Amino acid sequence: MPRPAVATPADVRQAVFALVAEAGVGQTPSAQAFRRAVSVRKVRERLGGGNPATIGQAINAIEAELVHAGVDRIVLPELPADVAELMQQVWRAAVGAQLDELSRLRSQAQAVADGAREELTEAQLRAEVLKQELTELRASVTERDSRLAQASTDQVALSARATALQAELDAARTQQAQLGGDLDAARATQAQAIAATQERYEGLSRRLLEETGQQRQAAQAEIGRLASQLKFADKRQAVLEARLQQLESDLIDVRGQHQKATGEVAALRYVNASQRVQLDEFVRALRVARAVPTPSVAGARERASKRASRPGKADKPGAP
């Protein structure tokens, strides 16, 4: 990503004229004097920054403008070594800036990926905890179902016992009716036997009623206790079912977060891969650029050789 220019062409022009004035080389300096007074490094130091390539182009344009009057008297030498080194420094600075920007973007992408991995790990741990709680709740529900089945079995047994007692009571009443008939039949023949039988019957009846009442009260109390336990079990079941539904909803949310984190990690991997491809393309372009000589340098060398072969003719201004 290219950085914005710090200095404008007008700022570069003003800085160049100031350096020329400070060097005292006159209004129309020679190319050598201009290069001694003005350089890309000096202009960048005066301006506090700027694109070296843009500053170099502006310096070349100003040099052509200032030294135009004295070009006819000057035979341009070969490209100075310090200028070539400066151009190499400019190129290395541009490449370094691009590599620094790419490294910064890669670090940011790695930080985002690490954060996503941490969130994914935390979500997985929460899911495991919720799964463990769900297993415990299912075990508790299973135990509650077992207790409820046992209570239902006990209730059925008590109902069968109450039915048996009722059958015994009906049998006793039937027997009482039979005894009453026998008593009526024997009353005419044996008054004393009837009186003894009546007394015995009344005693047995009282005893039977007392035992029946006690058993009935005990059965009712047991039925009431079991009904209370059944109600409590129903309430507990409702609470556990609500808790189970809440845990299932939380588990669905955790799964959604897990899927979202997985999508973000995939997107970050895709961005990282695209950046790697861009880096490879940039490195290949850099190698090609290093292999091919710069047009401006080649043109300058060719013009210098032609001028050296024709010293008597006027030279045209060109790039240093």
Score class of each variant (00 low, 15 high):
Ala242Thr: 08
Glu222Ala: 15
Gly224Ile: 02
Thr262Asp: 14
Gln229Leu: 10
Ala185Asn: 14
Gln176Phe: 12
Ala221Glu: 12
Ala238Pro: 00
Tyr201Pro: 01
Thr174Ser: 15
Ile194Gln: 07
Ile223Gly: 13
Ala188Lys: 09
Ala191Phe: 07
His258Asn: 07
Arg243Tyr: 10
Glu199Asp: 06
Asp234Arg: 12
Gln190Gly: 13
Gln237Cys: 02
Ala219Pro: 00
Asp184Tyr: 09
Arg236Met: 07
Gln190Trp: 04
Leu226Thr: 11
Val254Met: 11
Thr212Leu: 14
Gly181Glu: 09
Ala221Asn: 08
Ser205Val: 08
Leu183Met: 14
Ser249His: 08
Ser228Gly: 10
Gln214Cys: 03
Ser205His: 07
Thr197Gly: 02
Phe232Asn: 15
Arg236Gln: 13
Leu208Glu: 11
Leu251Tyr: 01
Lys231Asn: 07
Arg225Tyr: 04
Gln176Tyr: 14
Gly213Phe: 03
Ala219Met: 04
Thr262Val: 09
Ala218His: 02
Ala219Lys: 00
Asp182Tyr: 04
Ala233Leu: 14
Gly213Arg: 15
Gln214Gly: 05
Leu204Cys: 07
Arg206Ile: 13
Gln215Cys: 06
Thr212Ile: 07
Leu247Met: 12
Leu226Pro: 01
Ala227His: 05
Leu240His: 03
Leu230Gln: 15
Arg206Asn: 02
Gln257Gly: 06
Leu251Ala: 11
Ala233Phe: 07
Gln175Val: 05
Gln198Arg: 12
Ala261Met: 05
Phe232Met: 12
Ala261Val: 04
Ile223Asp: 14
Arg225Ala: 12
Gln175Met: 06
Ala242Arg: 07
Ser205Lys: 05
Ala238Lys: 14
Asp184Ile: 01
Leu240Phe: 05
Arg187Thr: 06
Leu247Phe: 02
Ala195Asn: 02
Leu179Tyr: 02
Gly180Tyr: 04
Ala196Met: 06
Ala195Met: 09
Thr174Arg: 14
Gln245Ile: 02
Gln175Asp: 15
Ala186Thr: 07
Ala219Val: 07
Ile252Lys: 07
Ala195Glu: 05
Arg206Ala: 09
Gln192Tyr: 12
Glu248Ile: 06
Leu204Gly: 10
Ala227Phe: 00
Ala186Asp: 09
Arg255Pro: 00
Thr212Val: 04
Arg255Gln: 08
Gln176Leu: 13
Ser249Tyr: 00
Gln259Val: 04
Ala218Phe: 08
Leu183Arg: 09
Glu211Arg: 13
Gly180Glu: 12
Arg187Ser: 08
Ala227Ile: 01
Ala238Leu: 11
Val239Phe: 05
Ala188Trp: 10
Glu199Ile: 03
Ala261Ser: 10
Lys235Trp: 03
Ala193Val: 13
Lys260Ile: 00
Ala227Cys: 01
Ala233Pro: 00
Lys231Glu: 10
Ala242Pro: 00
Leu230His: 14
Leu208Ser: 06
Leu247Asp: 10
Gln246Ile: 03
Gln175Arg: 10
Lys235Ala: 07
Glu199Cys: 04
Gln192Thr: 11
Gln215Ser: 14
Asp234Ser: 11
Leu226Phe: 01
Ala233His: 06
Ser228Cys: 03
Arg173Val: 11
Leu226His: 03
Gln259Phe: 00
Gln190Ala: 10
Gly181Pro: 00
Asp184Gln: 15
Glu241Pro: 00
Phe232Pro: 05
Leu247Trp: 03
